[in-house]
Amino acid sequence: MNRRQFLGSVSAAALGLWGRPVLATDMPPSKPYRIYMALWRGWEDAAQGFKDYFTNQNIPVELIIRDAGQDRSKLPEFVAEAKQLGVDLVFTWGTTVTVDMLGTYDKVDPTKHITDIPAVFAIVSQPDGAKVVPDLASSRRNIAGTSYLVPMETQVNLLQSYRPVRRLGMVYNPLEKNSLVAADELRALGRRDGFELVVAPVDVADGKPVVASIAPKVAGLKQAGVDFLYIPPDTFLNINRDILTGAALAEKIPSFAAAENPVLFSKAMFGGVYRYYTVGQLTAYKAEQILVHKKAPADLPIEPPKRLSIIINMPVVRALEIYPPMGLLGLAEVVDNSEEVRP
């Protein structure tokens, strides 16, 4: 796929909407649907998108919102409470909440997990890899959900459409399986597109990744001659995104992020992501299929939104002086807080 074709397909996707039915004729039920929302790190865009969908579609819902505050021990309480309240649907945010509350498909325990109440999940990076579902076509369980990671091939095409890359660098946390999978996929695509992947796992001490090793790893990649840095959807790197993107900027390496935070809230140069808000909306659409249209959750495929968001961080672009092609710029959302950054 060349750059122009790729941009064409992206623009088509950007304009495309989900084929969802208009529900104006559906009579609102007298009683609102009760949805139990189990969150991992507070109210954010995916939860907002989920909530707004019901408002926009005029579907009355009563949301029972619980935040674990990244504390795993709270999750069994949530399971018990949801069961006791007898809600219509459970919404789980993130891999941890989903796995702990819904169980994996090969280990479901009706005493510990929610089984009888239908559930939808969001922001699970690898629903099949994490064993939430056996395959993305169907959960074969009483749950449905969405994925939110952009397919690697799309990411690489997007990256190449900004600037052809010969040597792609990647810093990652070796303890996270996601990143290892990403590295393998990148290597395979590199063989196809003719670029080389140079990886730099962060140091691990006492079974924990070392924050201080991030910047030296980036410097090492610079020395290895990489011309683009790939930032995987890695929790450790997401937390330390300022250090990572700051180091990349200091080394004058343009960076591409697979998740929105490094571009939106830090100094990654650009990214191709599904916005959390959009993912939340799509998850709500799945919930609607179950609650309003009485579809079996197992009949709903696990899919990402069709609308890809290309985000360009303009202060970083200006600092690096590596400008995006006109065609890409026309399709991108631009982050430009006018606050100049310095390498």
Partner: peptide, 13 residues
């Protein structure tokens, strides 16, 4: 966005 007019990229395509 601060891209100098002579430094525009991908204009040909």
């Amino acid at each position: 966005y601060g891209i100098p007019v002579d430094k525009l990229v991908g204009v040909d395509e």
